[in-house]
């Protein structure tokens, strides 16, 4: 790929997870393009977005993997957790079911990422106050009990979107500074030198394919 005339000292890998229709792709789009994407189609796969931000004078390239939320893809999207430095776990404040599923998403995240992965809970669609189905307080309590960062945001208005992405990066960077995050570990989700967007999430051995392959 074309790296473009850009420079950065770190690459942080993020994943965005949560039920179908909670607005994961819209959050990514709002963050990278500063626009709300109405009529966003369901993500069938894993979208990839990037943006360079600055934390403590360091340019950091965020490499964001926006996963499909459909239940039937769950087994496949689990492949993408590995090596994430940040996980944005999204629910829809107007649909309680998406909130109820959080513990399952959280279990996956805890099982499939490393202990230093920063998990940020986002209650999306906070612009739809009238249709609210999950209170701020209970979500806040859930976040606190599970040691998650939490914010209510709106991909539509852009409220708190920037904050969620940047706070996650700050927290990760802090972990690096504190030595809690081992840069040399392949699964840290952080690369210190610029390189191609790596994917250490799926098998390292992608070339070893079927023996009856015709290629």
């Amino acid at each position: 790929m074309s790296a473009g005339p850009y420079n950065y000292s770190y690459i942080f890998k993020y994943i965005i997870i949560g039920d179908m229709g909670v607005g994961k792709s819209c959050l990514l789009h709002q963050f990278t393009e500063k626009k709300f994407m109405a009529d966003c189609p369901h993500t069938i796969g894993v979208e990839f977005g990037t943006r360079i931000i600055e934390v403590s004078g360091q340019k950091i390239k965020l490499q964001i993997w926006d996963t499909a939320g459909q239940e039937r893809f769950r087994a496949v999207t689990r492949s993408y957790y590995r090596g994430a430095a940040g996980a944005l776990m999204v629910y829809d404040i107007t649909r309680r079911s998406t909130y109820n599923h959080l513990s399952s998403w959280l279990t996956d995240t805890r099982n499939l990422t490393n202990p230093s992965t920063v998990i940020f809970l986002i209650g999306n669609k906070c612009d739809l106050e009238a249709q609210r189905d999950v209170t701020y307080e209970e979500a806040s309590k859930f976040a606190e009990e599970n040691g998650l960062l939490f914010v209510e945001a709106s991909a539509k208005t852009g409220d708190n979107v920037e904050e969620a992405f940047l706070e996650t990066a700050k927290k990760i960077y802090q972990s690096i500074q504190d030595g809690r995050l081992d840069l040399n570990a392949a699964e840290s989700g952080v690369q210190h030198k610029p390189s191609q967007p790596g994917r250490n999430n799926l098998s390292n051995d992608q070339q070893a394919n079927k023996d009856n392959c015709a290629c």
């Binding site: 894993v46 979208e47 990839f48 993408y80």
Partner: peptide, 9 residues
């Protein structure tokens, strides 16, 4: 998978 890009299912 697209090298350096997104994945589609």
């Amino acid at each position: 998978h697209l090298k350096g890009g997104k994945d589609m299912f």
